[in-house]
């Protein structure tokens, strides 16, 4: 059960389920009014993807593998991006999320420098859409102007809307509610992404985390050695052909 104020939002990413299909990437762009990444944006290495698929090569033809991993803001409990912001545009809220206040941001980009996961993206241009495509923009999400930092918000607008509406209607918001889930989670066909409340011991994410973080479990965190205390738990890729546990 989800009630406002008592939550710690987090995600579980099962790398063994992920196929690298990019469905989450496009769903995120649709939900969050991410500017269209044109060819020149890629060429300047300034394309914006709040969630991205990283592809790692292993070996050579014919014994070659490509491995995929989705990476989004890890919503660190100990976030390196937060203390460097001179204007408090990025900070930790009381629901465990690392949030970005666009109208505070002055574009120093210190936070992007500080983020070891490289999930913060800067708007180098004023976002542009042809007039008719603006009809698709999500009215729940601010369009970021030039000079503003942006990143994955765990679709905070969905959390807000669904908790508000459930309170209004006196309904219980269940774990895994599709109105609550971020867009990427709902889009994922293989169910590689699971979202929920780590403060609720009965939530799916809590249960998976508890099991996965046991000795011999598949759980790990990205760059745990940095002490970031992330709210995203990854589950290891399984490959029966490997002799010992390794990675990229």
């Amino acid at each position: 059960m989800v009630t406002a104020g008592s939550n710690k939002w987090g995600m579980v990413v099962d790398v063994d389920r992920c196929t690298g299909c990019q469905g989450c990437v496009v769903a995120c762009q649709s939900e969050n009014n991410i500017p269209i990444n044109l060819e020149e944006h890629f060429n300047q290495r300034r394309a914006i993807q709040w969630i991205r698929i990283e592809r790692y090569w292993e070996g050579e033809y014919p014994n070659v593998k490509a491995r995929f991993i989705p990476v989004m803001c890890q919503h660190c409990g100990n976030a390196p991006c937060e203390p460097v912001c001179p204007v408090y545009a990025t900070y930790h809220n009381n629901e465990g999320m690392n949030v970005q206040v666009y109208n505070r941001c002055i574009g120093t980009r210190f936070c992007a420098n500080g983020c070891p996961y490289h999930v913060r993206f800067f708007n180098f241009w004023e976002p542009e859409w042809p007039e008719s495509l603006k009809n698709q923009l999500n009215p729940d999400v601010t369009v970021r102007s030039r000079g503003i930092m942006e990143k994955c918000s765990f679709c905070v607008q969905r959390i807000q809307r669904s908790t508000r509406e459930s309170e209004r209607d006196n309904e219980v918001l269940e774990d895994g509610d599709r109105g609550l889930n971020p867009a990427c989670v709902n889009a994922c066909a293989t169910n590689a992404l699971i979202f929920g409340n780590f403060n609720d011991p009965d939530s799916k994410v809590s249960q998976i985390k508890e099991d996965a973080m046991k000795e011999g479990g598949r759980g790990y965190r990205l760059m745990e050695n940095m002490g970031t205390d992330t709210n995203v738990v990854y589950l290891k890729k399984v490959d029966q052909s490997v002799e010992v546990t390794h990675g990229h």
């Binding site: 990283e54 491995r67 991993i69 070891p116 290891k236 029966q240 546990t245 990675g247």
Partner: peptide, 20 residues
Amino acid sequence: NTVPEFPRDEHHHIIEITSG
């Protein structure tokens, strides 16, 4: 290469792989 590559070494992997 739109975002810089993660620092990786034999102890710190981005994709952890297990034989299961």
